[in-house]
Design a protein around this nucleic acid. Sequence first.
DNA 1: GGCAAAATTGACTTATACGTAAAGGTCAGA
DNA 2: TCTGACCTTTACGTATAAGTCAATTTTGCC
Lengths: 128, 128
Amino acid sequence: MNRFYTITELTREFGISTRTLRYYEDEGLIQPERRGRTRLYRSADRHLIQEILRGRRVGLSIAEIREIIQVYKDPPGEAGQLRLLMRKVEEKREELRQKRKDIDDTLTELDNIEDSCLARLAEIGVRS
Amino acid sequence: MNRFYTITELTREFGISTRTLRYYEDEGLIQPERRGRTRLYRSADRHLIQEILRGRRVGLSIAEIREIIQVYKDPPGEAGQLRLLMRKVEEKREELRQKRKDIDDTLTELDNIEDSCLARLAEIGVRS
DNA sequence: GGCAAAATTGACTTATACGTAAAGGTCAGA
DNA sequence: TCTGACCTTTACGTATAAGTCAATTTTGCC
């Protein structure tokens, strides 16, 4: 099960382009192995890509994602840096909590729109 | 309480720039009144701006926000259009639910990062 | 009425996250 | 050897959502 994935396999699986994966590599988010010039992705890379895409979906920038990855690869050893990091993490968390609330509110609004559509449809339906 | 807001009052309240509000106006999202050339915002405009900003925060594009506003201003009267709209709304809702899940997952991940930071800090604390 | 502060428009610039086109390398199978 | 399906790099292009700047009005206030 320790196989490789090619770039197109992954693009198909995730519905993204090769450009995107090469871009992530340029930006230092992933470092697939190479055979000659061809990129070979391990399942760890595949996993990381999933997390990167999730990060993008929740609105993290490439730079922010890079920071998070960096923490996993090489967590800061110095107390001050750790505390700075924790502050940043707490900030992001607050941001995401707010975003979740925004989403809930928007979902409610979309519910309302749907309701008024249904009402309108009923109105029209009665008449026609 | 039926007062006006100036553009800078609103930019200060919402932490955005005048350029942004004018941009939203150019894009047809808001239509503040004018006294001479000066824009005067009613509290309805202020409210709408809040919703626009929330839409932006959850990842709606200007075009999508415009569509939603349009629905409120002038809901489609034809059954086919209504059904199309409902399909779109349902799509957006599914997207937002997914996004909500992504956010929850990311929050969990940030929790983990924080935990490992704390662990690390404890380690260092013990040694120093 | 005069003047500084605030507001306007229009044009140009910018950041992010890729898209796209050109030009070609690699390898398996017929 | 040829074809087709991949893969590569380099470089410029693009959409979105504003930011910036300059040159004018306009307004509020004394």
